[in-house]
Design a protein around this nucleic acid. Structure first.
Length: 454
RNA sequence: GGUGCGAUACCCAAGUGGUCUAAGGGGAUGGUCUGCAAAACCAUUAUUCGCGGGUUCGAAUCCCGCUCGCACCUCCA
């Protein structure tokens, strides 16, 4: 069964397939802005895209070209660089590295190409120049260049922004900082003239010194690395408008060709039923999750436990559930015979994944198989299916915490008491160890200590 | 004000006209095992799907109304 995926532009499920004669599936995923550690909401999008990438590679026999950019110049990165009095490149390098480390921990495959905005200034300038030449862009007094939205008939087809604008109450129309420079409020910057706040971040261009606007980078990098027309463009729902709407306008006006055959947007993560925000204190990074004793793999599982096109309410309970579920999969894998079994047994799992990335249904189908027991299950087929999900079952469940000396001493005493069959003392010591927040696990030949489970 | 999404057991979450007396995970409870625990394994845990109408032989699923929640509306994945 082919992969069916919701298309945000067509507003319907559509089959994913390569459109170029070489049969390579071209896939662009809007990547992170590297000015701080990414949070778990960002990672939901990247984990979902990683799952999609894995399914595409299975479906098209590895003929997939996955591009995910890094936004390394924008208002936020510049602000961070100035606040810390460090060069922009140093700041963005730090957070790119951190992003990569986090993605590795979450078992996300590296994209085949990971272009940066600063590495594609010339390509962006080229596109802007073409847009200006074709009459889709204009210069303002200060040397900025704006895209003329009214010059693109189909503008708003992705987000239906036209309908929205018509009905928009005037009171809510926000005053944009550069409103005076634009001919129309919905026009957007292609090139931003240099301002003193930009410090030393500036490039020469036909319009003077400045820097590219945000939207143009994806159009330029997509064109360079995948061509004028791609098979799929993805990102979080927040990018639907204005970012992707603007990308379509720029790319199609510049190239005179359809930009992407398919658009996909994954929904946002909520934390404890609310939007993540610093003021609510519910914004987590991967490091914070790990510090709470959960594994990155559990986070991956938890992020896939809800349907990607539905808001997912993330809670620490969901990480606990994920950790347990992964443990069940590990035990099941260990119980599988080396060979034999029906390789087609996991078809319902793939079927659910191919049906618009229905990860909850797919996990349900997987556990239905697991619950029937290991006999007759093909180990290699099981490994393929866990690899498709991107679950690395060899990854440690959780980092080992250091046992405090007093707890270790109590444990040694209890082990001695137990071996002396002084069970009253042994039980008392177990209770003390538990009160200290630890569990003592007895085996025939010894014992180990673990932080107490909730 | 506009746009979109959602409401399924204690929590999370599939299912969108009959195979649903509703998948799956967590939790809880009981059992096997264990000196006792833990882990593992086994079993149980919604005749019901926000509320009220309607359509249909048949509805969690379609239609109408209502209530509640969430998100988005110019640079946030």
């Amino acid at each position: 069964m082919a992969i069916q995926l919701y298309d945000s532009l067509a507003r319907d499920l559509r089959e994913l397939k390569p459109h170029q004669p070489d049969g390579v599936f071209r896939f662009y995923n809007c990547g992170p802005t590297v000015y701080a550690a990414a949070h778990i909401g960002n990672f939901r999008t990247f984990v979902v895209n990683d799952l999609l990438r894995r399914l595409l590679e299975l479906e098209f026999d590895g003929k997939v070209r996955h591009v995910r950019n890094i936004t390394d110049v924008d208002d936020k990165t510049i602000r961070r660089s100035r606040e810390e009095k460090r060069p922009l490149a140093e700041v963005t390098r730090q957070w790119s590295d951190k992003f990569h480390a986090d993605c590795d921990a979450l078992n996300c495959l590296r994209p085949h190409v990971e272009p940066t905005a600063t590495g594609h200034i010339a390509e962006q300038i080229d596109m802007i120049a073409i847009l200006e030449r074709k009459g889709h862009a204009y210069r303002s007094e200060d040397g900025s260049v704006y895209f003329k939205v009214s010059s693109f008939e189909r503008y708003g087809s992705l987000s239906r922004v036209r309908e929205r604008e018509l009905k928009l109450g005037t009171s809510l129309k926000p005053a944009s900082a550069d409103a005076d420079e634009k001919e129309d409020g919905s026009d957007f910057a292609l090139w931003k003239a240099f301002k003193s706040e930009d410090g030393d971040v500036a490039w020469d261009s036909p319009w003077g010194r400045g820097r590219p606007g945000w939207h143009i980078e994806c159009s330029a990098m997509s064109k360079k690395h995948l061509g004028e027309t791609i098979d799929l463009h993805t990102g979080g729902v927040d990018l639907l408008f204005p970012h992707h709407e603007n990308e379509i306008a720029q790319s199609e006006c510049c190239n005179g060709a359809q930009f992407s055959h398919h658009w996909y947007h994954s929904e946002h993560l909520l934390v404890d039923g609310r939007k993540m925000s610093k003021s609510l204190g519910n914004l987590y990074t991967l490091d914070e999750i790990v510090a709470k004793g959960y594994s990155p793999m559990a986070l991956r599982y938890a992020l896939l436990a809800g349907h990607p096109r539905k808001q997912l309410n993330f809670t620490l309970d969901s990480l606990h559930a994920a950790e347990k579920a992964l443990e069940t999969l590990r035990h099941f894998r260990a119980a599988l015979p080396a060979t034999g079994g029906d390789p087609a047994a996991f078809a319902p799992v793939y079927q659910a994944l191919h049906d618009d990335l229905n990860t909850p249904a797919a996990l349900g189908a997987l556990f239905s198989i697991v619950n029937r027991g290991p006999s007759g299950v093909d180990a290699a087929a099981f490994d393929r299916v866990t690899r498709a999900f991107g679950f690395n079952l060899d990854a440690p469940a959780a980092p080992k915490a250091e046992v405090p000396a007093p707890v270790a001493a109590l444990a040694a005493q209890r082990w001695a008491a137990k071996n002396a069959k002084d069970f009253a003392v042994a039980d008392r010591l177990r209770a003390e160890i538990a009160a200290a927040g630890w569990s003592m696990l007895d085996r025939k030949d010894g014992y180990s200590l673990e932080p107490a489970k909730r």
